[in-house]
């Protein structure tokens, strides 16, 4: 049982949740994630640790509402408990000083990108961050990203905020302008696919942090498996970060949709119960 000590909405569907987890707080590094289960009947879902506070013994999660479990989590209040929190899981991001790092985040990927942006900045890099969303009200974590980025470029599909265009447009603008040594992309599989194709064109080493469906998070089940460089890898233990140019994003896209019908049905049922 882990207590929620703080909760703050960044936008309608995105909130920061601070929970007590002293051991995890001490052990975690940027790129690590936890798996949580809200209650006895809940599902196990992975969430990136955005930051931690050793003294208070807390970790911070930034959660976007996309389905039943994330909605239930955002419905919890300060003082409530989360049934299970386990971690830190995955391999930590390999953070070093490389020069200029181009970080790109879209949709669900913006939250897990935050600690990576912070890590690269603190390691002395110049960090340029591109945030992409469909429209203005879906842009999240802008302020937090600005804190650790030298520059933040916002792209919206409809042009309601920042520049009109896709994430790849924002990335190319930077690449054409200055030397980029490394790129990190996190977001929906389709976005990562095109972001990765873009950097490949310019021969820029790129990491993608994959958000596959998981169960245990310890390498026991293979639910999170993916093809990288023609080989099967388990995202929870071999990743979540991989060389983006080697990842089979089409397969990942398809695997993410494995339970779409059940998820949508469950979400509709959930919405009925809360109304």
């Amino acid at each position: 049982m882990n207590k929620i000590v703080e909760k703050e909405f960044f936008s309608e569907n995105v909130a920061k949740i601070v929970i007590e987890a002293p051991e995890i707080a001490v052990s975690r590094k940027p790129g690590h994630f936890v798996i949580i289960r809200i209650d006895e009947k809940g599902e196990r879902i992975p969430l990136t640790i955005a930051s931690s506070d050793n003294e208070k013994g807390t970790i911070t999660l930034v959660v976007q509402k996309v389905g039943v479990t994330s909605a239930k989590l955002l419905a919890l209040e300060e003082g409530d408990f989360i049934h299970d929190v386990v971690g830190p899981l995955g391999k930590a991001t390999h953070i070093e000083k490389v020069g200029t790092v181009l970080c790109a985040g879209g949709g669900v990927g913006v939250a897990p990108l935050l600690p990576i942006v912070e890590g690269f900045k603190k390691a002395g890099n110049k960090v340029i961050t591109v945030l992409a969303a469909r429209s203005k009200d879906l842009v999240i974590l802008e302020e937090q990203m600005r804190e650790f980025s030298d520059e933040v470029i916002i792209m919206t599909d409809d042009g309601s905020y920042g520049k009109k265009g896709l994430v790849t447009h924002g990335m190319e603008e930077v690449i054409n302008r200055e030397k980029v040594n490394l790129s990190v992309v996190i977001g929906p599989a389709i976005m990562m696919k095109f972001a990765s194709l873009t950097t490949k064109k310019y021969n820029i080493k790129t990491y993608a942090s994959l958000n596959t469906i998981m169960v245990d998070g310890t390498g026991m089940c293979g639910a999170c498996r993916i093809t990288v460089g023609g080989k099967t890898k388990f995202v929870c233990v071999d990743g979540p970060e991989f060389d983006a140019h080697e990842v089979d994003f089409d397969l990942m896209l398809s695997r993410l949709g494995a339970y779409r019908e059940q998820e949508m049905e469950a979400y509709e049922n959930y919405l009925k119960t809360v109304q």
């Binding site: 169960v215 310890t218 390498g219 026991m220 089940c221 293979g222 639910a223 498996r225 099967t232 397969l251």
Partner: peptide
């Protein structure tokens, strides 16, 4: 606890599980 796969083509399609999963 680490499941083995056979590494044959198509093994990562949806609907294919390890017994552990």
């Amino acid at each position: 606890g680490l499941p083995r796969f056979m590494n044959i083509p198509g093994e990562n399609f949806n609907g294919i599980f390890s017994s552990n999963e």
